[in-house]
Amino acid sequence: MTSPLEIFFGSILDHNIALAYILGMCPLIAISTNIRNARGMGLAVVFVVTLTGMINYPIYLLLVRLDVAWLNLLVFIITIAATVQFLEMFIDKFFPRLYNSFGLFLPLITVNCVVLGVSLFFVNREYSFVETAAFSFGSGIGWMLAIILLAGVREKMARSSDVPKGLAGKGMTFIVLGILALAVIGFTGLASIQ
């Protein structure tokens, strides 16, 4: 039995959703050229992942009760699209300053695998509601950590390092990601999530 706190810290560090489970790579690589954008995207992901994780949990229970659990993919993706759409309108209307910092990234999130991945993982791991909440929030933070670290390294590298021509750009980004993933492995054993 793992406590929610353990799940929370575990999913930030040693079970980091970006660096250990390799989810959400497309935006991670596309938007990590500078720290400002990376932070905006990271914040948007934290918001959306936490919300959709908590919304999808009761919906999944309902599906199980109606004996149509196999529809979960279709239902999850629609909930996610709707939540993102709603959140965008809400933030645009009530928090215009917040919208400027990360609202632009919201539409891109519907196709971010982290969001759907978190919803599918809690089904596979049979979490309770509190565990799901801890896991989704932790995963969001973990993803944000990964994108900010990567953006920091890339920003420095763009100025000061001489990368071979064929490797420059996306190729080098993968090598950096590999090294970051090795660092995360250093935390192995922090939490026993399965």
Partner: peptide
């Protein structure tokens, strides 16, 4: 076998 290998 794990994530870093894939990235490299």
């Amino acid at each position: 076998a794990i994530a870093p290998g894939g990235f490299f």
